[in-house]
């Protein structure tokens, strides 16, 4: 990589660097329509300027970045609306320019000036940028770049909260099943981060949107796509069993509808899925305050369930013992229920 080509004789100030990026990005618009040559030139210009930003933010491998300059650069980027500009121009950029941009993005977000995250504040005032990034999952060319940028944003609770509560969040239920595996699994990583990174934010969200969320989530759990089923089931146990979500979990295990979902998954042809399902199913059974409907279902299906559980085993491994113990308890409980009289009536 020959950054040195572009090294200007006199070092530019942060203001100049930002100015140059801004101008070159703006130029993309007008020149795009003119002709191919001009466009190429304009793209080169953007790339060169992004490399300059990157060098200022991260150093060039030899020279360490100058803290003052970095601070100035961050302030300038926010002041000049370059943060918004780069996102909107992302689809028009070339391969390397996008990668440089993604790299700068993560540094810009993390940069504190006077103990404030300026870039994060900027995004808080322009939340629509996050919506724009989410929608980018539909564009295969830039999906992975946007995914990386989104996950950088999600590290900050305010930004994660916005996405969870925005209309864009629903799109993830679609994105995680996109046919392109790389895009779909990147979308899933982001989805997972949204639901696991900030416990209290997630708990608030789930409390307020319980029904709509689990409605959508049920579709993932019952998807014909193996990967979707397996990943969503695993993720469910990850966030449902988190401490801040305990009231959500208590509510969840009262619902016959979701019990049925878990029972279906217990019968899945994949053993991995069966085992993950068991870890949620067991909470339904172990719950001391089982509603009558749950008891009825368990009792009615007790033979089939016991048989299923009997055949279920992890195989070798250290968790094995604990798993078997739990299984025994659950089987016992199911058998106990089946002998109880409450079922009639």
């Amino acid at each position: 990589m020959s950054f040195s080509f572009f090294k200007p004789s006199r070092p530019k100030t942060p203001q100049e660097v930002v100015r140059a990026v801004k101008d070159s990005l703006m130029a993309l618009d007008t020149k795009t329509v003119v002709d191919v040559k001009a466009l190429e030139k304009a793209m080169e210009e953007v790339e060169k300027n992004l490399v300059a930003v990157r060098c200022m933010l991260c150093g060039d491998g030899e020279v360490e970045p100058n803290i003052d300059q970095v601070s100035q650069l961050v302030l300038e980027v926010c002041k000049e609306d370059v943060l918004a500009l780069v996102i909107h121009k992302l689809p028009n950029l070339g391969w390397e320019a996008r990668k440089d941009l993604v790299h700068c993005w993560s540094v810009l977000l993390k940069q504190k000036v006077d103990s404030k995250y300026c870039s994060v504040e900027y995004i808080e005032n322009h939340f629509e940028l996050l919506d724009f990034l989410v929608v980018c999952y539909d564009n295969k060319e830039i999906a992975l770049n946007c995914g990386l940028m989104l996950r950088e944003c999600i590290k900050f609770p305010t930004l994660a909260k916005y996405i969870l509560e925005s209309a864009s969040f629903e799109l993830f239920f679609k994105f995680v099943e996109l046919p392109n595996f790389d895009v779909a699994s990147d979308a899933f990583s982001t989805f997972k981060d949204l639901l696991t990174k900030h416990g209290t934010v997630v708990a608030e969200y789930l409390t307020a949107h319980y029904d709509e969320f689990f409605d959508l989530y049920e579709k993932l759990l019952t998807s014909p796509n193996y990967v979707t089923r397996r990943q969503s089931l695993k993720l469910l146990s990850e966030f449902l069993l988190e401490a801040p979500n305990s009231h959500i979990m208590k509510r969840y295990v009262l619902e016959v509808r979701y019990l049925k979902v878990m029972m279906t998954l217990l019968k899945d042809s994949s053993k991995n899925i069966q085992i993950s399902a068991f870890h949620i199913f067991k909470v339904f059974v172990a719950n001391p305050n089982k509603p009558r409907e749950v008891k009825v279902i368990l009792a009615k299906n007790n033979e089939r369930l016991v048989e299923l559980l009997d055949n279920l085993s992890i195989g070798k491994g250290s968790e094995d013992e604990q798993f078997e113990e739990e299984k025994e308890l659950i089987i016992k409980e199911i058998k106990r229920l089946s002998c109880q009289p409450i079922l009639d009536s």
């Binding site: 595996f181 699994s185 990147d186 899933f188 990583s189 796509n225 990967v227």
Partner: peptide, 28 residues
């Protein structure tokens, strides 16, 4: 996932890049 993503984000004449990837039942 990591392998696939890594591959997708790299582009170099001496690096084998996948054309695409998708799931077929339980196989990728």
């Amino acid at each position: 996932r990591w392998e696939i993503k890594t591959m997708s984000l790299l582009s170099h004449p001496n690096i084998l890049k996948a054309h695409c990837s998708f799931t077929v039942g339980r196989r990728l």
